[in-house]
Write a protein that binds this DNA or RNA. Structure first.
Length: 950
DNA sequence: CCGGAATGATTTTTT
DNA sequence: ATCATTCCGG
């Protein structure tokens, strides 16, 4: 994009006044915003310091700066201190500079200084909050009842953050400004919500949702004796709606005590945090807001001539208000897309953009109480709609709109028309449109996804556009997007097993990966003691032992020899890093996972030396807390990207697979996390569970909560938008995948869901054929001449023929042969179990212990190389020779290539129209590796350079 | 066939 | 907490 389109130009040139910009996905938002910025600072007397540009991530801020530098007259150094930043960093700067007295405005006798830390790590804050609550409980007997009735005190922290995001703050003696009103709630608003869910359905023949949802009123609960009976709440049998009076009865309640409790927790936690010299994200904004509100001089000196906010749909109520306070002029420009609002859990309020005008007026009026804080005129508002899309094809753009009207459950009915009316349809700028939009399904969804990707890569039907040209796709072009990190983890681990090029991008629960769990298991085994069994159980299970077998092994301490020796080997290693690497190596985990884990652990514990026990605790804690770490694909590898939809926002990929379109994969997130308050509409509520409540004196009327919370029904709006975000990442092709049960979203989309049969190894092998296996060339070719063993170095020869290598190896071979021939044998150790699994996974015919003879013309004349391979796997169009080896460490691949190569060439000659491949299967590692065969010339050279024939 | 009541299964995202 | 399913009564 070199020159702006007309709508973009309107925005770039319209630098004055209030602008509300609907900037859909891929409409060149960053381009336009940076151009507008350049245009503003190009004016006489306007410096970068006068222009606030808000982004929602630090990365985005950095990108903005780079883009501005790229097409402007400023260099990066000049922009380094320019206010192009996130709300959080803006607030941080503000408090850093002027925040000393900010706490005093709430009546807190403390200060904010440059040394006040910002806690970003949730785990750390939770620990601090727990110790605060313990102290609070000791000091406040009067609140003991409330504390006891909470199912989890940690929910209080969520309540506080929620309140802070809405501008509800405590002061020493009460509530800040008009906060109290918000806490009291708005009966009219509540009544409207109540009426909406209490409307009888199906023209009056069916009961209302509210009445239906109250069917379990009172069950598993112990209400106060004064609580109404179920029949009073639901109306008599056969009635269609909850009686009218219930709304009033539920809403109007003396909540003074409850509100007082929350006030004290809130206020004292603020004091506690400041006392410990830290702020969390919420409090950062809280104090910045208070400061700007109270200190006219600071507000005026900190205000900007121009304010631009990107991704406005992700802003919270308090952020909107801060932006208003810091706008010294009407030059306020908000840019966003309501269809991409997916951060409500971070308190993003989509209404900031969908109801921009009314919120602008309401917030400004609130802020202007008592002083002139927002002094510019609130109209006119210039609306600009960017509709030209520079990313996707038209078919993808059109298709993606369906996401916004797809029902999230069978009974959810959607007002499609009113939604469509609010959509600004995008127009593609793409020159071609050969988009494939497909959906597929199989219970083994991970395998199905992998095999679909294999069929896409290199396939012209999925050609992607690059610089105006079409080319077949590579792995790099494909991204798998999922709702949950967990699905991503699972997919990765399946990909690992197939050595499939795939990498995760973004935050992931690193300690919950397979690799981390195995490291933890071996650490526990090494540590010995009471936890050792837990370690063994994991390791044994992983090796295929059944629960009964594991129990037996543990009871009698009969660990497999191989595992014992692995433990000894680990014990000899000097560093934790070496131990971990060895474990990763054993289980064939890719280096990137291993490195990420190592780095994560080292970063937590760099300074002091860490004992094995420390390390164990660290990983255990990481697993329990679900600690996440950022990981990214190593640069320069051609691999598929796996990301959560939340983390992919703002990015694009040529081919997108929206995976895990399954039942339950998109739980509704309407409202907040269900534990929080109804502070705006119905007043503050806290929850407790039956378990805690049972036998405990009650302090407030729980029954009201049960009615209240059903009046704010959850919906799937945000999930639809999430799906929309995922779909609009795709440039050329868009696919969906599901496992057992496709969800209602997928079913509602106008695409056929094809049931597929996954075969990830498609590329390597094809379906069984019963094809005959008769190598035609060699058996008659002559007497056995040289064996590959004789071509080895003596030292290598010795290593592989002594110790475990020989004895153990031959037992595995015996088992493999017996099992492949269909004899009734059961695997007795890891290696045999792995071999069994391998054989089970092979389609077609498997032959064992085959010997072949390869004639070779050398300088000395004609000779014959003989080779034995363990398994030959034959299908209709492919032949694979597989050599069994115990583990990578012992069996240097290179040395055995010769043997495999002999057989490879024999087969290649025998089966000219099938693809022939050679592999090694490492029985201890459960890993199969394709081997590049030596060429005939190479074999010839080897023979010639070996002086003594066998 | 319809609607209501009871019951069972399932349950995230991250600046 | 909410969805889907099953059972039962009219």
């Amino acid at each position: 994009m070199t020159s702006p389109n007309p709508e973009q130009r309107r925005l770039i040139e319209g630098t004055e006044g209030i602008h509300l910009v609907d900037a859909g996905a891929g409409t060149g938002k960053t381009f336009t915003v940076t151009r507008r910025y350049a245009n503003i600072v190009a004016q006489e007397g306007v410096e970068p310091d006068d222009v606030l540009l808000i982004t929602f991530t630090r990365n985005a801020a950095g990108e903005m700066k780079e883009r501005i530098v790229a097409n402007g007259e400023y260099d990066l150094r000049a922009l380094n201190d320019a206010p192009i930043q996130t709300f959080h960093s803006l607030c941080h700067d503000l408090l850093d500079e002027h925040g000393f007295d900010a706490p005093s405005y709430l009546g807190i006798d403390d200060s904010i200084t440059g040394s006040t830390r910002i806690i970003e790590d949730e785990t750390i804050e939770r620990e601090a909050f727990t110790s605060f609550i313990d102290r609070f409980a000791d000091e406040h007997d009067e609140h003991a009842g409330f504390l006891r009735s909470l199912s989890d005190p940690m929910e209080l922290l969520d309540v506080l953050s929620d309140l802070a995001s809405k501008g509800v703050f405590p002061t020493k003696d009460g509530w800040y400004r008009n906060s109290k009103e918000a806490l009291a709630g708005d009966y009219d608003a509540f009544k409207r919500a109540f009426d909406a869910v209490n409307e009888p359905r199906n023209g009056g023949s069916r009961q209302s949702t509210l009445r239906s949802d109250l069917a379990r009123y009172g069950s598993d609960k112990c209400y106060l004796p004064s609580a109404p009976e179920k029949a009073d709440i639901r109306g008599e049998r056969g009635s269609k709606a909850v009686p009218e009076g219930v709304a009033e009865r539920v809403f109007h309640e003396d909540r003074e005590e409850l509100i007082g409790f929350v006030h004290d927790v809130y206020f004292e936690y603020l004091e506690f945090a400041l006392g410990r010299n830290y702020l969390n994200f919420s409090f950062l904004q809280l104090f910045a807001f208070v400061l700007c509100c109270e200190d006219d001089a600071v507000r005026e000196s900190a205000s900007f001539e121009y304010v631009m906010i990107d991704e406005f749909q992700d802003s919270s109520e308090i952020q909107f208000k801060i932006a208003l306070l810091l706008s010294g002029t009407p030059n306020l420009c908000v840019v966003g897309d309501w269809k991409q609002s997916i951060y409500s859990f971070q308190y993003a309020a989509v209404e900031n953009i969908t109801e921009f005008e009314s919120r602008l007026n309401r917030f400004a009026a609130e802020l202007n109480e008592g002083a002139d804080r927002v002094s510019f005129p609130l109209s006119p508002i210039t609306r600009i709609e960017l509709e030209r899309n520079y990313r996707s094809t038209q078919s993808i753009l059109d298709f993606s709109e369906h996401a916004l009207v797809a029902p999230g459950s069978g009974r959810e009915s959607i007002d499609g028309k009113s939604i469509r009316d609010r959509i600004v349809s995008l127009v593609s700028n793409a020159s071609h449109d050969r988009s494939r939009i497909e959906a597929f399904q199989h219970p083994d969804e991970h395998e199905a996804v992998l095999s679909r990707i294999q069929s896409i890569v290199g396939n012209d039907e999925y050609a992607v556009e690059e610089d105006g040209e079409l080319r077949p796709p590579t792995y790099d072009d494909v991204a798998v997007l999922t709702r949950t990190r967990e699905y991503g983890r699972e997919l990765l681990s399946v990909a690992d097993a197939y050595e499939f090029p795939m990498a995760y991008e973004g935050g992931i629960e690193l300690f919950r990966t397979d690799a981390a769990k195995l490291v933890l298991a071996w650490l526990r085994i090494l540590e010995g003691g009471s936890d050792a069994d837990r370690g063994w159980a994991v390791v044994l299970e992983r090796a295929g032992y059944t629960l009964d077998e594991i129990r037996h092994v543990l009871e009698h301490d009969r660990y497999p020899d191989e595992m014992r020796s692995f433990r000894e080997a680990l014990a000899d290693l000097e560093t934790h890093g070496a131990v971990m690497r060895r474990v990763f190596d054993r289980y064939g985990h890719r280096e990137s996972t291993a490195d990420a884990l190592l780095t994560a652990l080292q970063s937590v514990h760099t300074s002091t030396t860490m004992t094995r026990g420390d390390l164990t605790r660290l990983i255990t804690r990481g697993i329990e807390n679900g600690d996440t770490k950022e990981v990214s694909a190593p640069a320069g590898t051609d691999s598929v990207t796996v990301q959560t939809i939340h983390s992919v926002k703002g990015l694009e990929h040529p081919i997108v697979i929206v995976a895990n379109m399954n039942d339950g994969a998109f739980p509704p997130s309407g409202g907040h996390d269900g534990t929080v308050t109804y502070s705006e509409t119905t007043g503050l509520r806290l929850r407790k569970t039956y378990a805690e409540a049972h036998g405990v004196p009650h302090v407030y009327d729980d029954w009201r909560t049960d009615v209240l919370r059903r009046c704010q029904p959850t919906d799937y709006d945000e999930e639809r938008r999430l799906l929309y975000v995922a779909m609009t990442r795709a440039r050329d092709h868009l696919l969906f995948s599901a496992g057992e049960d496709p969800n209602t979203f997928l079913e509602a989309l106008p695409v056929d869901v094809e049931t597929v049969e996954p075969s990830v190894s498609d590329v390597e092998r094809t379906e069984a054929s019963g094809a005959a296996f008769e190598p035609s060339v060699p058996a008659t070719a002559g007497p056995e001449g040289l064996s590959p063993h004789s071509l080895m170095d003596d030292s290598v020869h010795e290593e592989v023929t002594t110790g475990r290598g020989m004895a153990f190896g031959s037992r595995v071979h015996e088992f493999a042969e017996a099992y492949a021939l269909g004899e009734n044998v059961t695997p007795e150790n890891d290696d045999e179990r792995n071999v069994k699994a391998l054989l089970d996974s092979l389609s077609g015919d498997v032959h064992v212990e085959e010997r072949a003879y390869l004639p070779l013309e050398t300088a000395d004349g004609r000779t014959t190389l003989s080779g034995i391979v363990d398994l030959v796997h034959v299908t209709a169009d492919a032949v694979e020779v597989i050599d069994l080896k115990t583990d990578r460490g012992r069996h240097a691949q290179d040395e055995y290539r010769t043997q495999l190569s002999v057989y490879y060439h024999v087969l290649a000659a025998s089966f000219p129209d099938r693809r022939v491949t050679a592999s090694m299967f490492y029985t201890a590692d459960d890993e199969i590796v394709t081997v590049e065969p030596r060429s005939m010339a190479e074999l010839r050279e080897l023979v010639e350079s070996t002086s003594t024939p066998d």
